[in-house]
Amino acid sequence: MVRIDGRRRDEIRKVKITRNFIKHPQGSVLVEFGDTKVICTAMIDDKVPPFLKGTGEGWITSEYGMLPGSTQTRKARDASKGKVDGRTMEIQRLVGRALRSVVDLRAIGERTIWVDCDVIQADGGTRTASITGAFVALVDAVNKMDNAQPFSIYPIRNYVAAISAGIVDDEIMLDLCYDEDSRARVDMNIVMTDNGQFVEVQGTGEKSPFTRDEMMELIALGEKGIREIIDIQKKSLGEDGNKIGTGEEVKIEEEQQDNNSQQQ
C-alpha cells in the first residue's frame, strides 16, 4: 500500500532537529516530523514545587500548546477558554514523565526545568515530536548548567524519544500523519529509551479492538522508528551528547569506593 506521502508502511517521516532556535532559553529546538513542527524550549528556575522543598531533589515539568494557526481551522487559545483542555493536560503530563524518566532528579539539585512545547504546525504526531524535541532542548539546558558549575553526577542517564504507530485500512503503519491518524482503527504512541526500555505505551482501539499479535507488531514497528529517531537526536547533539549516561558510571565508581573504604 502506498501512503499519502509515498512512504513505506514501516518508514518514518523526515525528521529534522534545529538547535538554538530561540535566543533566550537555555535550550531551544525546532523539531519537524514531516509537516508537524514544534518549538521546544527548556528554561531553568532556581526553585522547586513545595512538595520538594528541602529534599535536595529537582523537578522537570512541561507545558504543551497548539498555536491558533497550527491547524486548518483556528484553534482557540486555552487562555481564551479559561481552562486547559483534557488533551492538552494529558500530553504535557506525558512529556514531563518521559523526560523525568531519564534524569537523576537528585543530581540537578533543587531546581525546576520548565519545558514548553508549542505546536506551530500540526500534521499528526505532535506529542511524539514534542517528546523528541524536548529531550534535545533539555540536554542543551543541562549542559549549560554543567558548563557553568559542573555536576558531581551528570544528570541525564539515557536518550528518550517517541513515535506513533497504527492500523489504517487494515495496514500496520509507522509514524502516522493527520490523514492516517484520523482514519486509524488502532492508534498507539510509544516512548522508549536508547537502551530499549519502555517509558510509556498508549494503545487505543479507536474503531474496534485489536489482537495481541497486532499489538506486538505495532510495538516492534515503534521500536524500529525510535531507534532511527534517537540516531537523529545523537547526530543533532554531536559531542554535546557525549556526557549522556556517564553519570551512572560515576555513581557506580563512587559506590565502589565507599564499599572499599568501609571494608578497610
Rank of each mutant, 00 (worst) to 15 (best):
G6P: 06
G6V: 05
E11R: 06
I12N: 11
I12C: 12
K16E: 15
I17M: 08
R19K: 15
K23S: 12
P25I: 06
Q26C: 06
G27L: 06
V29L: 05
V29A: 01
L30S: 01
E32P: 00
D35S: 14
D35Q: 14
T36I: 09
K37E: 07
V38W: 00
V38L: 12
C40G: 09
T41A: 08
A42H: 11
M43D: 15
M43Y: 03
I44F: 09
K47P: 00
K47G: 11
K47F: 11
P49L: 07
F51G: 01
L52V: 09
K53V: 15
E57C: 08
E57D: 04
G65W: 08
M66Q: 02
T71N: 08
T71R: 10
T73Q: 13
R74T: 09
K75S: 08
K81P: 01
G86R: 15
M89L: 14
V95L: 02
A98Y: 02
L99E: 09
S101F: 03
V102D: 02
V102P: 00
V103D: 06
L105S: 07
I108K: 01
G109V: 10
T112H: 13
T112F: 10
I113W: 00
W114D: 06
D116K: 03
V119P: 07
A122S: 13
T126S: 14
A129L: 04
S130M: 12
T132R: 03
A137Y: 01
D140Y: 10
D140P: 10
D140R: 09
A141S: 07
D146Q: 06
N147K: 14
Q149F: 05
S152E: 14
A162F: 02
I163E: 03
I163M: 12
S164Y: 08
S164I: 05
A165N: 00
G166H: 10
D170T: 01
M173G: 04
L174E: 11
L176S: 05
L176T: 00
D179L: 13
E180P: 06
D181F: 09
A184W: 02
D187W: 08
T193K: 06
D194N: 15
N195Y: 07
Q197N: 15
V199C: 13
E200D: 12
V201E: 04
G205S: 11
E206T: 06
S208A: 15
P209C: 06
T211F: 11
D213I: 11
E217V: 08
I219C: 09
E223P: 00
I226W: 01
R227W: 08
E228N: 09
I229H: 00
I232L: 04
Q233N: 10
K235T: 13
S236P: 00
L237W: 04
D240K: 14
T246C: 03
E248W: 11
V250F: 05
E255G: 02
Q263P: 00
